[in-house]
Each structure stands twice: as C-alpha cells, then as structure tokens.
Amino acid sequence: MRKSIPLRICLVSGIVMIIQFFIPHRYSQTVYNYTLDWLIVSGIFAIVIGLHSNFHLHITRIVRKRKGWGYNVVTMAATLSMAFIGIAFGIGADSLFMKIYRNIEVPMDATMFSLLGFFMASAAFRAFRAKTKEATVLLIVALIIMIGRVPLGYFLWHRFPELVEWIMMYPNMAAQRGIGLGIGLGMAAMELKIILGIERGWLGGAGD
C-alpha cells in the first residue's frame, strides 16, 4: 500500500500524459492545462522541505556550537534578512533587495566560478599530459580551438576561425550527436521503466 499507491499514481499520470500527446481534442487539452497548473501548485510545497532541511542544518550547528558555528550564524542571518527585505519592501528594480542581489550575490557568485580559471591554469601546467595517442589528439585539437576562437587566431591566419567552425560543425557535431543519441535512448528507457514501475529508485528514503 505504501508503495503500490504511488506506483499507480505515477503509472496513471504518466500514461494519461503520453496518450494526451497524440490527442489534439479539446478535452485532451483541458486535461493538459489542468495538469500544468496542478504541477505548479503542488510543486510549491516541495520548496518547504528544502527550506526546512537548510534551516535545520544551520540551526543544529549553531545550537550545538559545532566548530565554525559562527559561519552558520552568518548564513542564517543573511537568509532571514534577505527574505524579510524582499517581502516587506518589495523587489522592484530600485529596491534595496535588488541592490543587495546585484552587489553582493552576483559578484560573489561570479568570483566563486572564476577560481576555476586559476585552477585550470595550474592543471594545464601540471596535469594535462599527452600520455596516450587519444590524449594527444585531444590536446592538439584543444590547442587549435584555443587559438582559433580568439581574435589572435584570425590575426595569425584569417581562415583559422573557419577551420575551427568546420571542426565544430562536422567531426565534433557527429560525435556529440552519437553520444547524444545514446543518452537520449538511455533517458527514454529510464523514463519508460519509471512509468511502468520497474525502476523504483525514486521511492527510496521514506521508509517501507
């Protein structure tokens, strides 16, 4: 019962939507539109769970005074004040909320990712090796692309960008498509198995 009802809900809603795909009739469209609305409304409650687990994590650390709990205070304070500022004073273009977003969240987020560029430079020197024939081809193509995709490449040889476009459009495209078809088949197979209740991994984590 604890597993059979969700499996049936999944089966029925999945099959209904697949059949709906092939039926253009008005009634079928109504079913479709209602389903879309229902998905949005029911999905909102999942956010509550996400919030709870976040708050829970930080509060436990603060209450138990775990090592570095001061940082958890920073997180909690930031979350609560940001949410309060947004809900109480609005989120318009010139609001304090958007100012904080633009000047605190955006730059930090971008900087976090920019660290990767530095790590890439260090890995370029210390790790990327042409150990095998395959790796050699890979590196050579990479070097061609790296020169051809910057203005310097065009400056060195004006057909460099064309060469890069050709590599991207044919050999690269072919491999991407081959890999993509494989992934598409794999995904579709997984989806089919979930609808039919053969794959039940998603039921996990809530007891039997």
């Binding site: 795909f21 092939f22 039926i23 008005r26 009634y27 088949l185 579709a188 197979a189 089919l192 198995k193």
Partner: peptide
C-alpha cells in the same frame, strides 16, 4: 472541429511502440 487523433504524430507513436517493446 476537434480531432481525436493527431495524424502528424503517427511516426512518433510507432517509434514509441517499437522502442518500448525492445526495452521490455
């Protein structure tokens, strides 16, 4: 007027049937 079957999607229907059959 309303239709009960989208004839443009016959190929997808056949593809879906073959695909599902093979996986099963």
């Amino acid at each position: 007027s309303s239709q009960w079957y989208n004839t443009y999607k016959t190929n997808v229907l056949i593809g879906l049937i073959i695909f599902s059959f093979v996986v099963l």
